[in-house]
């Protein structure tokens, strides 16, 4: 269980996050949606403390993370994998060497690393590209390498920051399918930040709608795909869509 208790974050005089509280259940796929500048990425980055909250607490399974330092915070981060819009692969390393990196950082025994890496690459369907460099891959392939890197040391949580924003619709569908399989096969809790309503609707069980650094609404998505939504949130999302800040299929 991930819990954010009244977390706030300021950048200079700008209040990016204002007293946000949020609970995410283990094994859930949770979406965070909102317009640009709503604070959704900042909120996501607070969960693995890439951004330290100025106020409030971040708890994972009851352990407060805020005050962790050094080796302990690094260990916690190793169990919270992250996916980025820009992939953030190491350009001078091969696909294999990119994917092995989390195992190397976690100092897992060298024996067996290759098998773990190949298992991850097989999971995302890229085992044949193990010796390629990221510059030789398409956007969708790069994102799948990022997924392989994220799951290679079996994290408990996967934080996804706009993972499909720079992908075409077909590749987006492939990437979402990989995300769903990660959730179903490994029981990984997934938190996905997106401004694309279709992405959120297609895989999330619950959605947090953010605006101006605050939680505007929490929405349950029913298995049928129909979302139970408070009237106010529906109107809010419509406004965002009409302003072009949220894409909708």
């Amino acid at each position: 269980m991930i819990t954010l208790n009244n977390v706030s974050k300021r950048f200079g005089s700008f209040e990016a996050i204002q007293s946000v509280s949020l609970s995410i259940k283990s094994g859930e796929i949770h979406g965070i949606i909102g317009a640009s500048g709503a604070g959704k990425s900042t909120l996501l980055r607070m969960i693995n403390l890439i951004e330290q909250p100025d106020e409030g607490n971040v708890l994972i399974d009851g352990e407060t993370l805020n005050h962790l330092k050094g080796k302990r915070i690094r260990q916690v981060r190793q169990s919270l994998a992250m996916i980025f819009q820009g992939y953030h692969l190491i350009g001078n390393k091969t696909v294999f060497d990119n994917v092995v990196m989390p195992l190397d950082l976690a100092k897992t025994p060298k024996k067996g690393r290759a098998e773990q890496v190949m298992e991850s690459l097989r999971f995302v369907g890229l085992e044949a590209l193990r010796d390629q460099y990221p510059s030789q891959l398409s956007g969708g392939q790069k994102q799948r390498v990022a997924f392989a890197r994220a799951i290679v040391n079996q994290p408990n949580v996967l934080l996804c920051d706009e993972p499909t924003s720079s992908l075409d619709p077909n590749t987006t569908a492939e990437v979402l399918e990989v995300l769903q399989r990660i959730n179903q096969e490994f029981g990984v809790t997934i938190i996905i930040v997106s401004h694309e309503m279709e992405v959120i609707k297609s895989i999330c069980e619950r959605v947090t709608v953010m605006a101006d650094g605050r939680v505007y609404e929490e929405i349950e998505i029913e298995p049928t795909g129909v979302h139970k939504m408070e009237h106010s949130a529906e109107g809010f999302i419509k406004r965002l869509k009409s302003s072009g800040d949220i894409n909708h299929a």
């Binding site: 693995n48 890439i50 080796k71 915070i73 690094r74 260990q75 916690v76 981060r77 190793q78 919270l80 994998a81 992250m82 980025f84 820009g86 992939y87 953030h88 692969l89 190491i90 990196m101 989390p102 190397d104 950082l105 976690a106 934080l159």
Partner: peptide
């Protein structure tokens, strides 16, 4: 790219790891 540093931090890399491995 700043993203590479960000990825390194998110993977739990130490300063030494970030310098030499990223």
């Amino acid at each position: 790219p700043k993203g590479v540093m960000e990825a390194a931090v998110s993977m739990g890399a130490s300063i030494k790891d970030i310098i030499f491995k990223f």
